[in-house]
Computed example of a mutant assay.
Amino acid sequence: MAQLTKSSTGTQPLALTKKNTFFNKSNITGWLFAAPWIIGLIIFYVFPLGSSIYFSFTTYSILQPGEFVGLDNYKELFHDKIFWISIYNTVYFAVFFVPLSIIFGVSLAMLLNMKVKGMALYRTIFFLPTLVPHVALAVLWMWLLNPGFGLVNGMLDMIGIQGPAWLGSETWSKPSLILMSLWGIGQAVIIYLAGFGDIPEEFYEAAEVDGANWFQKTFYVTLPLLTPVIFFNLVMGTIGAFQQFTLPYTMTNGQGTPANSLTFYVMYLYDNGFKFFKMGYASAMAWILFVIIMALTAVIFLTSKRWVHYQGK
């Protein structure tokens, strides 16, 4: 016997009541307003995502439909020398850039958080590099780091130090890229400044009453309460580091020179997909990158319980 529910007109089946509630006028209106976004999500995200999974198991290129080859693309990747070089370069960049960006970002934000006249101007100056397009940024630093007439080596010569070849050296090419990337951390600094503004002054007053000095207040009050912001920038910085593309591609014209020392993972993925038209191979690379980023993000989230401190908890 169907389950009954009471209403103003008597008793109706519960399933029918739920159906009428789902298709009432307000729900239909809501779905109609959300329909453009849902359709766009399906067309531009869900469908390409599903297609890339299928293409990663095929020899698909932009010019030919290709054939289903199973796991051959993934097997070939593990025997691809350039693939492993690109992973090494990307991991090298992420391991050094992400911690340095947090250290320099927090330190710079602490300096810009001081009560000094004209601080708004200083904050603007440090934020301006983030507004420069990456292509223009790459051209600028190529001039600065030029081994023959660059400003950096010129200043080093003035103090008796012979500067390296920078972008022309296998040893210094990746440190040069890290230096360029650190120049544009103004956006992270703004987020840290917002985090500083969220720390109540009562904590500092209580620490001062207890006799804490500046060093103790920094390490026992400021940094612990700033860890949610550090956590956010750590996740976003890690994802961004593994997707490094524009700077090295612009500086090397897509060649990754010298000796592939600036061939990053996304650069090699792009070359396979749009230069060599190996779209199935590139799709397999994209899904490997997705798994790597998801795994690292999961590790960061799991370990965050030990070092991220939220106010009121």
Rank of each mutant, 00 (worst) to 15 (best):
T17P: 00
K18R: 15
K18E: 10
K19H: 12
K25I: 08
K25M: 08
S26P: 00
S26N: 15
G30W: 11
W31K: 00
L32S: 12
A34G: 02
A35L: 13
P36R: 04
P36L: 01
L41K: 08
L41P: 06
F47K: 11
F47C: 01
L49Y: 14
S51I: 02
S51P: 00
I53T: 06
I53M: 14
F55D: 08
F55K: 12
F57A: 12
Y60K: 15
Y60A: 02
S61L: 10
S61T: 15
I62K: 09
L63R: 12
L63Q: 13
Q64S: 09
Q64R: 07
P65F: 03
G66I: 11
E67R: 11
F68W: 13
V69L: 01
G70R: 02
L71Y: 07
Y74E: 09
K75L: 11
K75Y: 01
L77Y: 03
H79Y: 08
D80A: 05
K81T: 15
K81A: 07
K81F: 14
I82M: 09
F83I: 04
F83E: 02
W84D: 01
I85P: 01
I85Y: 03
S86C: 08
S86D: 08
A94R: 05
F96H: 10
V98D: 11
V98H: 09
P99D: 10
L100T: 03
G105H: 07
V106C: 05
V106H: 10
M110Y: 04
M110S: 12
M114N: 04
K115P: 05
G118T: 13
G118S: 10
M119W: 07
L121V: 14
L121H: 09
Y122K: 13
F126E: 06
F127L: 12
L128P: 04
P129C: 11
P129N: 08
